[in-house]
């Protein structure tokens, strides 16, 4: 009997394979959730290191920190900050869905979970933006 190993399944090459599932043209809500979670996750890791880099200025003492502070105050930067909050909301709430669904809880309503996660993120995002620009 020939040996039976699963190595023979050819993937479409590594990068093409990953890109394959990134194109959502013919995919369903589940894939959208999976890809958004992945993109927001990577962006957040990027921000983590950016944030740690900036905090280095704090260790330099007050002078360098105050110079940077002004930069952070202008509204354009606030817009970027709000995007960060949005990514956190999406990644967090979708992650919560994955944690529940991933242990077999509410699997049948996974699409509903995703829809709620996204709409809750949207609402909170609006509140945060209003708070940031001092409207509330």
């Amino acid at each position: 009997m020939t040996s039976t190993t699963v190595h023979t399944r050819p993937t479409r090459g590594r990068v093409r394979g990953v890109l394959a599932y990134a194109n959502l043209r013919r995919r369903h809500l589940g894939s959208v959730a999976f890809v958004t979670n992945r993109i927001t996750g990577l962006l957040l890791v990027g921000y983590l290191y950016l944030h740690l880099g900036i905090l280095y200025l704090l260790t330099e003492g007050p002078r360098s920190w105050t110079t940077v502070l002004h930069l952070f105050k202008n509204p354009a930067f606030l817009g970027l900050e709000s995007l960060l909050i949005l990514f956190i909301l999406i990644h967090g709430l979708n992650g919560l869905r994955l944690a529940l669904v991933g242990t077999g809880v509410g699997v049948r309503h996974q699409k509903a979970w995703f829809a709620t996660a996204m709409s809750v993120s949207g609402c909170l995002y609006v509140v945060v933006v209003l708070a940031m620009y001092g409207v509330i």
Partner: peptide, 27 residues
């Protein structure tokens, strides 16, 4: 958990649901 397999299944087997059920059992 992209659930693409359950969307593609022509016989209503819901493999994604089965995978999550395995995870629930193992957890």
């Amino acid at each position: 958990a992209s659930f693409e397999c359950s969307e593609a299944c022509p016989s209503g087997v819901d493999p994604a649901g089965a995978t999550m059920a395995l995870r629930r059992e193992l957890t």
